[in-house]
């Protein structure tokens, strides 16, 4: 499946008095690779929660390929083509990698009601193998998720989302908690996935070297609102961003 167009219009989220998302309007063109950056507590994860239906919005709209998905059940949003990996890997600990992917595929396809067949059916196992190949998890097919390294758990989390053939894939800090080498390996994988699948990819990232190296466009959030958006070069020149977030280190 190729990339979808994701639009946010005047999106708002209040937690009591805290405005976690403040009139955010953003447009992610089909097939693009975008980064979302911003200080801790800026509302980045909340934005993903709103898009994926994990949290109800307080106002505004989310559109996928022009049709509104705001307020839909989160499962339905997944079916429409929005996939998501989590800031903290969100897995099925006792499943071996292949079974976890197969189970995700079957649940998504509504094929888990069968009592008579054995799990996983061959066609599903084959698709799981393809996803493992794509994500570089093939050598871990028989390892239980709970015994994977931190990096491989994050990778499996992404693979679980990817297995469902999303048009838009949202990655919440794919490199969180990794050492420098592991970080780059991870981000090269992510980049490779994006190239291979041509999907619309949006990732939240704190490492500015990574952000400026691979993303086509960058959105900066602060206090729940959009502070700036543009190409990496534009963002690095933007005085407001430099002052609020980047500091001199990454400025051009």
């Amino acid at each position: 499946m190729s990339g979808g167009l994701l639009e946010l219009r005047q999106l708002r989220k209040n937690f009591g008095g805290v405005v976690a998302t403040n009139d955010v309007s953003l447009r992610f063109e089909p097939g693009t690779l975008s980064a979302i950056i911003g200080p801790n507590g800026a509302g980045k994860t909340t934005l993903f929660h709103l898009i994926t239906g994990k949290l109800p919005v307080s106002g505004g709209e989310v559109l996928l390929d022009g049709s509104a998905i705001t307020g839909l059940d989160r499962t339905e949003i997944v079916r429409r083509g929005i996939g998501r990996a989590f800031q903290v890997a969100n897995l099925f600990p006792s499943f071996v990698v292949r079974d976890a992917l197969a189970a995700a595929l079957m649940a998504h396809a509504g094929r888990t009601a069968s009592l008579a067949r054995s799990f996983p059916p061959r066609d599903v196992a084959e698709r799981a193998d393809e996803v493992m190949e794509l994500c570089g998890l093939a050598h871990l097919a028989g390892t239980e998720s709970r015994h994977l390294s931190h990096g491989d758990q994050k990778l499996l989390d992404i693979a679980l989302a990817l297995a469902l053939d999303p048009k838009v894939l949202l990655l919440d800090e794919p490199t969180a908690g990794m050492g420098p080498d592991e970080r780059w390996r991870m981000i090269e994988r992510v980049h490779g996935l994006w190239l291979a699948r041509g999907l619309t990819l949006v990732f939240i990232e704190h490492d500015m070297d990574i952000v400026f190296k691979i993303s086509q466009s960058v959105r900066v959030l602060r206090y729940g609102a959009v502070l700036a958006e543009g190409t990496p070069d534009e963002i690095r020149r933007n005085p407001a961003v430099i002052e609020a977030y980047l500091g001199e280190e990454h400025a051009l």
Partner: peptide, 22 residues
């Protein structure tokens, strides 16, 4: 061992993510 059983085990391991998957 059936797909149904796999669904039950998903619910045991992580009901939240299982719900996300449909």
């Amino acid at each position: 061992r059936s797909p149904f059983g796999a669904a039950l085990r998903m619910l045991r391991d992580n009901p939240d993510r299982a719900g996300f998957l449909g």
